[in-house]
């Protein structure tokens, strides 16, 4: 049996890791941690996608609200299309469109009984001066209510930031918990197999040789847990995507992630898990080995 075969096939440990603390404990712990961290990452990406969708639909446009029965003023505003350098289009919404917008809030029956305001949807070019356009519209219709959606945008951005902050804090806590748990499991394994470690130490094994065995064993368990955790997260995320797709809602846009985001989502928990396993096991074992003569 060559060293290469030993490394890539059935790695034979000098320490009986299959005995004592459940050999799969580290797999379960890391699987659960990776699932939560990957899910948090996925939520963060999804939130970015949704926020971007909402922001794109709200920026670069104004809604001008005029009192009922002002068609001439509305026509003047719609005439800005082609005349004003910052306006790409200006369209007076038909009464049925206005009714459609209000119906979800007031009900179909109620909407019919109101005299509806006149709404003009003004689309701006990229880099337009919103203030200048608002000033020019105000000059045409001093009584008009001009909504540049700043308030809505501000709310969306604030909510997104709060959720992202919460998700980041939660991920950090889970990560810390993962490190502490893995270190604890490694120390417990060291304590259980102390006599075997001492024997290896006394027959000439270096600290690195012994630490490598713990590292390899921990890494294998964490890697398996990370794969399971990422797979579970991917399942949950795909299912959530399918649900939002079937909702066909205009308020909750479909979650779309870039290929790079998928790669980050699938690879980074695995890489982080491996790194944490390696460093944590090494540090925990080195500290314990220092107690031997």
């Amino acid at each position: 049996m060559t060293k290469k075969k030993r490394l890539f096939s059935a790695y034979k440990y000098d320490i009986a890791f299959s005995e004592g603390v459940s050999p799969h404990l580290v797999t379960w712990v890391s699987g659960l941690m990776v699932f939560f961290i990957a899910l948090a990452l996925a939520v963060s990406f999804a939130l970015t996608s949704v926020t971007k969708n909402w922001t794109q639909s709200l920026t670069g446009s104004l809604t001008v609200e005029l009192a009922p029965g002002a068609p001439a003023v509305a026509e003047k505003i719609s005439a800005l299309e082609g005349q004003h350098p910052d306006v790409s289009s200006a369209r007076v919404l038909a009464a049925t469109e206005v009714q459609g917008l209000l119906a979800p809030w007031l009900g179909d029956a109620a909407v019919g009984g109101f005299s509806l305001p006149v709404l003009v949807d003004v689309q701006l070019i990229d880099g337009a001066s919103v203030a200048r356009v608002k000033r020019d519209i105000a000059a045409i219709a001093p009584m008009a209510v001009i909504d540049d959606h700043a308030e809505a945008l501000s709310s969306v951005t604030t909510v997104a930031q709060v959720v992202r902050g919460f998700v980041s804090t939660l991920s950090g806590a889970v990560l810390l918990l993962a490190i502490v748990s893995i270190a604890g499991i490694v120390r417990a394994k060291f304590a259980i197999h102390r006599q075997e470690v001492e024997t290896l130490h006394l027959i000439g094994a270096s600290d690195e040789y012994i630490a490598r065995q713990f590292r390899h064993h921990t890494l294998r368990g964490v890697l398996l847990g990370a794969v399971l955790g990422v797979a579970a997260m991917a399942g949950v995320f795909i299912a959530a995507g399918m649900v939002t797709h079937t909702l066909n809602s205009t308020i909750w846009p479909q979650i779309q992630m870039l290929p790079l985001q998928w790669i980050v989502l699938l690879v980074s928990p695995l890489a982080a898990g491996c790194f944490i396993a390696h460093v944590t096991a090494q540090r925990a074992v080195t500290r314990e080995l220092e107690s031997l003569a």
Binding site: D14, A16, T199
Partner: peptide, 12 residues
């Protein structure tokens, strides 16, 4: 070293 309790690795 030959230990009094042998200290053999029982899984090997």
């Amino acid at each position: 070293v030959v230990f009094q309790d042998f200290r053999l690795m029982n899984h090997l």
